[in-house]
């Protein structure tokens, strides 16, 4: 039997206490224990980016962190971001620009792009490519994803006057 430990953490704003097996990754904890399956699991060794979530506000690989290391942390997954409505425009832009085909990479892409747009509201195409360099997409060829992120940035800049953000 694996040893288990109790952890206290916040997931998408809800504080909880859970008993976790030490070797359970954050990705498996989210998917299997909490049923939050937007966080995908591809390579399980840090290369593909499908499992990207935010830990204490910063994007991270949920497959490269054991749940137990997240004791006291605040985790945000795509479910939380989507339900809050704050990335609805980004989601729609992905749809409009055909920035997804099979959708496997999409949650990781959205979580990653959302952080970029918060920290750098008008990224260049180079900067968009830089940040999604850690996320593999086997379908789209990336171009449409860059388009969707760029379009969202432009639309946000137009809808909010300079300095309002």
């Amino acid at each position: 039997m694996d040893p288990t430990f109790p952890i206290t953490l916040t997931v998408n704003g809800t504080e909880m206490v859970r008993e976790v097996p030490v070797r359970q990754t954050l990705a498996d904890f989210l998917r299997q224990t909490l049923g939050l399956t937007a966080t995908h699991v591809g390579c399980e060794h840090g290369v593909c980016g499908a499992c990207t979530v935010r830990i204490d506000g910063r994007i991270a690989r949920a497959c490269l962190t054991f749940a137990i290391q997240c004791d006291g942390a605040a985790i945000e997954t795509l479910e939380g971001m989507a339900e809050s409505g704050k990335i609805a425009d980004l989601q729609q832009a992905f749809h409009r620009r055909n920035a997804l085909q099979c959708g496997f990479c999409t949650s990781g892409m959205l979580v990653t792009a959302a952080q970029l747009l918060e920290e750098n509201p008008r990224p260049s195409r180079e900067e968009i490519r830089e940040i999604i360099s850690g996320n593999y997409c086997r379908c789209t060829g990336y171009h449409a994803i860059v388009d969707a992120v760029e379009e969202t940035a432009e639309a946000r800049a137009k809808s909010e006057p300079e300095g309002a953000r």
Binding site: G49, R58, R61, Q115, I131
Partner: peptide, 8 residues
């Protein structure tokens, strides 16, 4: 690496 690895 990448941003999501540099965060950890």
């Amino acid at each position: 690496a990448h941003e999501a690895i540099r965060s950890r």
